[in-house]
Structure formats: structure tokens, C-alpha cells
């Protein structure tokens, strides 16, 4: 029970720190889940993330469910997801009820101009950490670069990029180039 509450609470915090879409949850996920609590490894976070991209639903919820499930089974998966949803529901309900013009407030847009810069720094930090673990040999450098460029400059959906990368991994395994 205590662990379930902790799952809820940790993911509620991650929910509060996720500005600007699912990607922004990563830095907090690394700190709270990987570093502080050891609930998942850096590699697992990447796996969850890639799977979350090409399965239905909101990526952040998919990731929360993965971590919660691994920790405490079904109820863990559900509570971690509910924890992530909780701050959003509260904040958006308050805004919808009292401040429909929220996004136009000067103080909000100024605060957000600062937060956006912080999000850049956070994502850079997350990418450096993940890169150290995932971009380790020639093949992975190529996959990283190709996916980065396609994602930036082509209209191909992320779903196909992830599936393509998975197929590459499989083919490389089949051809037996790398044992691991």
C-alpha cells in the first residue's frame, strides 16, 4: 500500500514537471525513477519510450503504466497512471472554470518563455544521458542520426520510424553482426 501511494505521488510530481508534451517527462523520469529510486534502468526507460511511441494512447501514460506495472503489477500500473493524470485534471479544470483566457495572460507567457528555455536544457541533459547508453557503436550512431534527421525533416510518422528502427535491430540480430 505504501509503495502504491509512493508510485502515485512520484508520478504526480512528474505530471507537474511535464511541460510541453510527453517528451518533457523524461528528465524527471530519469531523476525520480532511475537515479533516486532505482525502479527502472536507463535502458528500460528508452524501451518503454520507444514502445510507447508506436502503441495506442498518450506516451506519458504508457510510460507511467510500464514503470508502475514493473514495480507493483496491475495496481501499480494503474496508480502510476492516475498519479500522472491527477495534476493535469486539477489544473485544467481550474483553468476551464476560472481563467479561460489563461494562455493570454502576460505573466503566463513570460513565465513560459523562461520555462521553455529550461525545457531545452532538461531535454539536452536527458539526451546526453541516454546517448551514453544507447549510441555506442557504428550501427547505433547511424540509427540515431537517421531517425533524428527523418524526424526533423521528413513527414514520416514517428510510428513508422520506431517500427523501422526495430526492424533494423532485428535484421542486424539475424545477420549475426553483433552478438548482443
Amino acid at each position: 500500500m505504501k509503495e502504491l501511494m509512493e508510485l502515485f505521488w512520484v508520478f504526480a510530481q512528474i505530471g507537474v514537471g511535464t511541460f510541453g508534451g510527453g517528451y518533457a517527462m523524461l528528465p524527471m523520469l530519469q531523476r525520480e525513477v532511475v537515479d533516486k529510486r532505482g525502479w527502472a534502468t536507463e535502458e528500460e526507460v528508452m524501451d518503454y519510450y520507444a514502445i510507447g511511441q508506436c502503441t495506442p494512447g498518450i506516451i506519458a501514460i504508457n510510460t507511467a503504466t510500464f514503470v508502475g506495472y514493473k514495480r507493483k503489477g496491475l495496481s501499480g500500473g494503474i496508480l502510476a497512471s492516475l498519479g500522472f493524470l491527477f495534476p493535469s485534471i486539477v489544473i485544467i479544470t481550474l483553468i476551464a472554470a476560472f481563467m479561460q483566457n489563461f494562455a493570454e495572460l502576460t505573466v503566463v507567457s513570460r513565465a513560459f518563455s523562461g520555462i521553455r528555455i529550461c525545457v531545452c536544457a532538461l531535454i539536452l541533459d536527458a539526451v546526453l544521458r541516454l546517448g551514453k547508453k544507447s549510441v555506442v557503436n557504428a550501427v547505433s550512431v547511424v540509427i540515431f542520426a537517421v531517425i533524428l534527421l527523418l524526424s526533423l525533416f521528413s513527414p514520416i510518422s514517428t510510428v513508422w520510424l520506431v517500427i523501422g528502427a526495430g526492424v533494423c535491430g532485428y535484421v542486424i540480430y539475424l545477420t549475426g553482426g553483433k552478438k548482443k
Binding site: 528508452m46 520507444a50 518563455s113 521553455r116 525545457v119 531535454i123 541516454l130 540515431f144 535491430g169 532485428y170
Partner: peptide
């Protein structure tokens, strides 16, 4: 084997998202 392909891809996608935010910010 599949994960060996997915992990660098995942990193690439996150880097792309970061660059998107950086362009705005």
C-alpha cells in the same frame, strides 16, 4: 535485437523534440 535498434532511435526522437523546442526558445 529489436531493442538494440529501438534504443538509439528513441534517443534520436527525443533529440529531435528537443531541437524543436530549442528552435522556438
Amino acid at each position: 535485437g529489436i531493442f538494440q535498434g529501438l534504443r538509439p532511435a528513441s534517443t534520436g526522437l527525443i533529440a529531435a523534440a528537443g531541437l524543436g523546442v530549442a528552435k522556438l526558445a
